[in-house]
Design a protein around this nucleic acid. Structure first.
Length: 427
RNA sequence: GGAGAGGUAGCCUAAUUGGUAAGGCAGUAGUCUUGAAAACUACCGCGGGUGACCGCUUGCAGGUUCGAGUCCUGUCCUCUCCGCCA
C-alpha cells in the first residue's frame, strides 16, 4: 500500500511509476477529489463528535450534581446531533473505503535504480557464476532422467491428483528431503536465520498484508470453508505476517526467518507454459527467506539476502546468473527484485530458481507492522524482504540435469552426500 | 463435537444503580550523585497538528443510551473438563 500523503504530494511521479509498471494509471484520476473529500468529511465528523462528547460530559456532571432538569434539557439538544453525526460518519466510512480500495489495488513504486522496461526482455544481468559443463554426449532433461531412474512418476501423479502434480520415489524423494535439510542448515548455521514452521493455511487478512489480495485471487487455492482460508502460495505470506499489527522494538531488527513449506498455486492462466516436468507445479517445496528490517538498512539487507540464496547454488556447484527485474516484470509488492536463474542444460538457458524482493514499507503498511526507535519516537513502518532460498523442486531439476552422466545416472554433489547417508550417485 | 471460564495499554491489576479507563511494574528523559542505586519530576496505547489541543482505544463488529469496560446480539481467540484424533 502506498502512503496517501506521498501520493498526494507526488501525483505525477506516481502516475509515471504506474505506467512504467504496465499498470493503467487511470485509478489515480480520482485520487485528488477522493482524498480531499475524505479529509474534509473526516474533520467535519470529528468536530460534531467533539461537540457531542463535550455535551455528554456536561450531562454527566449535571446529573451528579443533581440538576436533573438542566440535564434533560441538554439531552434533548444532543439528540439532534446524532442524526447529523451518523450521516457524516457514513460519508467518512464510504470515503475511507473508496480510498482504501483505490490504494490497495496499486502496486509498489519501483526503486530508482530499477531498469525501466515493458517486460523480462528489459531485465539486466548483474552477475554470472560458474561455467556450464561440457557434456560430450546428448543431454536428457529431468523428466527423462527421473522417469528412467524410477525416481519421478508424473503419469501416476496425474491419475492420483491431476496435471501439474508429481510423485517422487526412492532416491528422488530422498534427494528432495536432502536439499531441504541442506538449505535450512546453511541458512540457519551460516547466515543467521531463525527457522520457523508456519501454517500452510492462511486467512484473508494475511493475504492482503503481503499483497496477494485483492488483485490475485485467481492464483490461490481457496478452501471451501466459510472462514476464508487459502493454501499458502509461498511461505512469504505466513512468515511476513507473523508480526502483523504489531509495534516492534527497533533493537530487535533485523528479524531473519527461514521457513521450509510446500507452496500451492493454481497457475490459472499459465496453460501451455512449462507443461512438461516439474518446472511449474500446483504444489512445490520451497525454502523461503524473510526479513523485517529498518528502512535505512533494507537495500543492504536485500543484497545480503540475495547473496544468501546464491550461496546455495555455489555450494551445489550449479551455474547461475542473477538479473535485476525491469519495472514491467516485477511483482506487485516489490520495489526491487533480483531473480536468480540456474543453468538448465536441457534447455540451454538460465531458468528462475529464486526471486528476491525488497518490498520497502509497502507490505508493512498493509500489515500494520511497525517499529519504534529509542527515545519515544513515533512508530514507523518496517521494511520487508523475501526471497526463495531456494525453490526446492527446481533445484532438484538442476541437480539431475547438471550432474547427469552418459549412462543416465546422477552424481550427487559433495555437499549433499552427508544428507544421503554417503551415497555418491543415483542409478 | 459437548459443557464451562475468560480477553482492560509491553506485563500485572482496578473501575458503586451505566457518568466518560484508576494504579503498580517494566521502559524513556531529567534532577540529585565522583559513579551507580535509591528518591524525586515528566513522559510512558494509536492517529492528526508547529502548537495550545483534538480524535480514537477495554479481542473484533454491531445494537440500546445524551453517555457503555459495564446492558443486549453476533463473532474471533485463549484456557479448563469430557468426547474424538496424529
Amino acid at each position: 500500500m502506498l502512503d496517501p500523503n506521498y501520493v498526494r504530494e507526488n501525483l505525477e511521479a506516481v502516475r509515471a511509476a504506474m505506467k512504467a509498471r504496465n499498470f493503467p494509471p487511470d485509478a489515480l484520476d480520482h485520487f485528488a477529489e477522493l482524498d480531499a473529500e475524505r479529509r474534509r468529511v473526516n474533520s467535519e465528523a470529528d468536530a460534531v463528535n467533539h461537540e457531542r462528547n463535550t455535551a455528554s460530559k456536561e450531562i454527566g456532571a449535571l446529573m451528579q450534581s443533581g440538576k436533573k432538569a438542566e440535564a434533560e434539557e441538554k439531552k434533548a439538544a444532543v439528540t439532534g446531533l446524532k442524526e447529523r453525526q451518523a450521516e457524516l460518519e457514513k460519508r467518512r466510512d464510504d470515503a475511507d473505503a473508496a480510498m482504501r480500495e483505490l490504494l490497495s489495488g496499486l502496486p509498489n513504486l519501483p526503486a530508482a535504480d530499477v531498469p525501466i522496461g515493458a517486460d523480462e526482455s528489459a531485465n539486466v544481468e548483474v552477475r554470472r557464476w560458474g561455467t556450464p559443463r561440457e557434456f560430450g554426449f546428448e543431454v536428457k532433461d529431468h523428466v527423462d532422467l527421473g522417469t528412467n531412474l524410477g525416481i519421478l512418476d508424473l503419469e501416476r501423479a496425474a491419475k492420483v491428483a491431476g496435471s501439474r502434480f508429481a510423485i517422487l520415489n526412492g532416491k528422488g524423494a530422498r534427494l528432495e528431503r536432502a536439499l531441504i535439510n541442506f538449505m535450512l542448515d546453511v541458512h540457519t548455521r551460516e547466515h543467521g536465520y531463525s527457522e520457523t514452521q508456519p501454517p500452510l493455511i492462511v486467512n484473508r487478512d494475511s493475504l492482503f498484508g503481503t499483497g496477494q489480495l485483492p488483485k490475485f485471487e485467481e492464483d490461490l487455492f481457496n478452501l471451501t470453508d466459510e472462514r476464508g482460508f487459502s493454501l499458502i502460495p509461498t511461505a512469504e505470506v505466513p512468515v511476513t505476517n507473523y508480526h502483523r499489527d504489531e509495534i516492534l522494538d527497533a533493537s530487535s531488527l533485523p528479524l531473519k526467518f527461514v521457513a521450509y513449506t510446500p507452496c500451492f498455486r493454481s497457475e490459472a492462466g499459465s496453460y501451455g507454459r512449462d507443461t512438461r516436468g516439474l518446472i511449474r507445479q500446483h504444489q512445490f517445496e520451497k525454502v523461503e527467506l524473510v526479513k523485517l528490517c529498518l528502512p535505512e538498512e533494507s537495500e543492504k539487507q536485500h543484497e545480503e539476502l540475495t547473496a544468501n540464496a546464491e550461496k546455495i547454488l555455489q555450494l551445489l556447484g550449479l551455474p547461475f546468473r542473477t538479473v535485476v527485474l525491469s519495472t514491467g516484470d516485477m511483482g506487485f509488492s516489490a520495489r526491487k527484485t533480483y531473480d536468480i536463474e540456474v543453468w538448465l542444460p536441457s534447455q540451454q538457458t538460465y531458468r528462475e530458481i529464486s526471486s528476491c524482493s525488497n518490498c520497502g514499507d509497502f507490505q508493512a503498511r498493509r500489515m500494520g507492522t511497525r517499529f519504534k526507535r529509542a527515545g519515544g519516537a513515533k512508530p514507523e513502518f518496517v521494511h520487508t524482504l523475501n526471497g526463495s532460498g531456494l525453490a526446492v523442486g527446481r533445484t532438484w531439476i538442476a541437480v539431475l540435469e547438471n550432474y547427469q552422466q552418459a549412462d543416465g545416472s546422477i552424481t550427487i554433489p559433495d555437499v549433499l552426500r552427508p544428507y544421503l547417508t554417503g551415497d555418491t550417485e543415483i542409478r
